[in-house]
Design a protein around this nucleic acid. Structure first.
Lengths: 121, 121, 121, 121
DNA sequence: GTGGTCTAGACCACG
DNA sequence: GTGGTCTAGACCACC
């Protein structure tokens, strides 16, 4: 578990958990079939509530990134590299559409956005 | 008042108000000294509470975009085009830093981000 | 009328008027019997409402700094230099007691206050 | 909670709350990480509205004196003694500049102010 | 009429 | 239980 949680962030903790584990799976850092730590262990290690971990795990399952075997644990889904790429782009594009609509509201063109992004990167 | 409020959005109403009016000011759509509608009128027109409007207006004032004169009304601040550009970039960069950290977590390079942005734009 | 009014100040306008004229009288800049401009003239010159000027004048009269002769106008009261000094200290001390209670709430000693004041002066 | 609210004061309640708690934090009376009472409890105890407490707490957070964790509570920020001193002077100087401009309008010199302060202290 | 403040009560997300 | 938000209605000071 290589997770960093911020209490003061405006993002709910379960969301932070979901996002970070999603990324790890979609980057291939967690292999197919990898067994996620039991909810209780993860909760203790991350110092969060069991409910919070459960919520994050549920969100992962809803996105088809993990599957649960009752009584055995949770495992990273068996995804082909094509499926991984597809899901990754799906998540990225979903966020980008939101981000871009914000930039557009200021009347920015694509090139202006690019210039600003370059500065930060 | 050209404002669209979404009750289903995850963003609080006062935040939506603040953002939309900010954009209008920073795009120069509302001229210096322009008199905003009285909070009570705005509240009725937008079908929200007075306090909600007030909260948005306060945030605008805190950002130096408007100023209020008790008993007279609220007015768009007298900003030079340089100041407007500066404030606009301030707001944009603040959001972009967040957006980029998300893209980076997926391991995306600047060029990959650009390619995706181009598709959506 | 050497008065500077700020619309954006948190102090009400009539209060600003009252304070500035008080100071001028108590500093001896306006002599005994000096005729204040008619309320209407002052209102026009200062670009404020007649009501606002009236309120300030009333406050001045209540403090014994001016007197009104119906149909003739308002005049600076005939105060001996002793009375002026007394009224001046009265106003100053009243404010200072408030200021000091604020400094004291932070646990500041007289010397610490002096040091900070010296910096600003 | 050692707070005294005055309904007759010209200062708004949320401002009184903010100032008094600020002072307690900046005097070191409330330690780092100290958990403030839940806003609802504070509201009942102080016999004010939840929103009023919230407004004061928000102002404290804006000044970096506390931080809130949704669902957990509000806590005194982790400030070094250096930061505390800096914030304290910031608040004090801001007020002192106003106070001094009033004294100066009467033509008082620094020494005269000092003499008067000494009398009252 | 305008902004400034306050209240009581309510619903929701989070942990 | 905790904070986050919202509403409807009210009173006040100021102009």
């Amino acid at each position: 578990m290589d997770i960093a949680i911020s209490n003061t962030s405006d993002k709910p903790i379960y969301q932070q958990l979901f996002e970070q584990i999603s990324v790890q799976i979609l980057k291939g850092e967690l292999e197919n079939g990898y067994s996620l730590p039991p909810i209780r262990h993860a909760a203790i290690e991350l110092r969060v509530s069991i409910i919070t971990v459960k919520k994050a795990w549920e969100e992962l399952e809803r996105h088809g990134l993990i599957y649960t075997v009752t009584g055995k644990g949770c495992f990273v889904a068996n995804l082909t590299s094509k499926e991984i790429l597809q899901k990754r782009n799906e998540m990225l594009l979903k966020q980008m559409v939101i981000d871009i609509s914000y930039y557009k509201s200021f009347g920015l063109t694509l090139d202006e956005v690019y210039e600003l992004l370059k500065e930060i990167y």
